[in-house]
Each structure stands twice: as C-alpha cells, then as structure tokens.
Amino acid sequence: MADIDDARKAFDRFDANGDGLITAAEYKSAMAQLGDFNVTETVAQAVINAHDTNSDGLLTFDEFWSARKGE
C-alpha cells in the first residue's frame, strides 16, 4: 500500500494546480524542481504521450500509476 501512497505524493508534486491532471508545463516545472533543467515542454509532452492511454495530452493518476508500475 505504501507504493500507491508514494505514487500519489509524487503525482501531487507534479500536479501543481491540483486539478488531477499533469500537463507538459507542470511536468517540466516539477523536473526542474527536482534538479533536471534539461526537460523542455516538448520532452515533457513526449513523456506524457508515451503513457497517455486516452490520448488527451494529459496524465491522470491512473496513467501515472500504470507508468510507474511498468504496465
């Protein structure tokens, strides 16, 4: 159970506005806060798109969780 709790905390850190979705801008900002300044919005969008199962260009918690679990 700790894994999903950790994933929720990580997701919430990326979801800056708390709307339940991670945008490319939020992903880029969170990565910069973690010290990775090489992530551009284009790169962030590519990462999101790789795990975006409904193709809306955003990352939900379920998509984030699936990506984290390697599904």
Rank of each mutant, 00 (worst) to 15 (best):
R8A: 15
I22F: 00
Y27T: 00
V39N: 02
R68Q: 13
S29L: 09
E63M: 01
N17H: 08
G20H: 08
D56T: 04
A44Q: 00
L21K: 07
F37V: 14
T60P: 04
F61V: 02
D36V: 06
F14H: 01
M31D: 04
L34K: 08
G20F: 10
A46P: 06
D52A: 03
V39A: 02
N38F: 14
A7T: 08
E41P: 00
T23V: 02
D19S: 05
G35C: 10
F11Q: 00
D3P: 03
S66V: 07
D62W: 07
N54A: 12
K69M: 10
A44F: 01
I48Y: 03
T53R: 15
A2V: 12
T53M: 15
G57D: 09
Q45Y: 04
Q45F: 04
W65L: 11
D36P: 03
I4L: 14
E26W: 01
A50P: 10
D36I: 06
A44H: 01
D52E: 09
A2C: 14
D19V: 06
F14N: 01
R8L: 14
E26H: 00
T42P: 06
D12V: 08
G35W: 00
M1P: 13
F11K: 02
Q33Y: 13
T42R: 12
T53W: 12
E71P: 05
D15M: 03
E41L: 03
T60D: 07
F11R: 04
G35H: 13
F14G: 01
A30Q: 05
K9H: 12
D6V: 11
M1Q: 15
S55D: 13
D62G: 11
W65K: 11
T23S: 02
A25W: 06
L58E: 01
A7P: 04
N54K: 12
A44P: 01
I22H: 00
R13K: 15
Q33M: 15
A16F: 06
R68D: 05
D15Q: 00
D62Y: 10
T40A: 05
T60R: 02
L58S: 00
L34R: 02
I22L: 07
H51W: 10
A16W: 00
R68T: 05
F11T: 02
N17Q: 08
A24H: 03
D56S: 07
L34S: 13
A30M: 07
Y27P: 04
R68V: 09
V43D: 06
F64R: 03
D3E: 15
A50W: 12
F37Y: 12
G35D: 02
A50F: 13
G57F: 05
L21Y: 06
L34E: 11
D62R: 10
S29F: 10
R68N: 14
A46N: 12
E71Q: 13
A30C: 05
L34W: 07
G35S: 07
N17M: 10
M31A: 08
A32F: 09
G18D: 10
A7V: 09
I4G: 11
K69E: 11
A10F: 07
F14A: 04
N17G: 08
T60S: 09
T42H: 11
F64Y: 02
G35K: 04
K28S: 05
R13D: 14
T53P: 09
W65V: 13
R8C: 13
